[in-house]
């Protein structure tokens, strides 16, 4: 089991930083631009997974297990969030027959 951090360390830390920042930015852009609630939700998951990647690489480089433990917490919370989120989206689909967020405009000024 000791090998995995070493494998991670064969790639410089900066590369991980750039990759996870790029993933995070793709997620943010998706949340801001897409209209389908499910795709927005997938983009949020992408943001969370970018964070997981960053935490794992920091943790491997510092030989400190804390970061990996945090990843487990993030995964558990993300799963809970998906449960609630998909239930809410299904509830909206039943009422509107659509998951387009632009149809939800009852609440304004």
């Amino acid at each position: 089991m000791n090998e995995i951090p070493e494998v991670i360390r064969t790639i410089p830390l900066n590369y991980y930083l750039f990759l996870s920042t790029a993933l995070f930015v793709i997620g943010v852009t998706g949340v801001l631009l897409r209209r389908n609630a499910i795709i927005i939700f997938m983009c949020i998951e992408l943001m969370l997974n970018a964070v997981n990647l960053l935490l794992v690489s920091f943790s491997a480089y510092r030989s400190d297990p804390n970061g990996q433990v945090f990843v487990f917490f993030i995964m558990a919370v993300a799963a809970a969030e998906v449960c609630v989120g998909l239930a809410i989206i299904v509830m909206i689909y039943r009422n509107l027959q659509s998951t387009d967020v632009h149809l939800l405009n009852k609440l304004k000024w």
Binding site: S20, F24, G27, V28, V31, A37, I40, F41, I44, M47, L48, A50, V51, L54, L55, F58, G67, F70, I74, V77, E81, V84, G85, I88, I89, M91, I92, N95, L96, V101, L104, N105, K106, L107
Partner: peptide
Amino acid sequence: LRSNEAALKYLLMGSFATGILLFGFA
């Protein structure tokens, strides 16, 4: 419908904020 809309907006904005917060923590 208003309750549905509030839930979806809160969920999407809330988890978006969570993502930003977590990137900061990382």
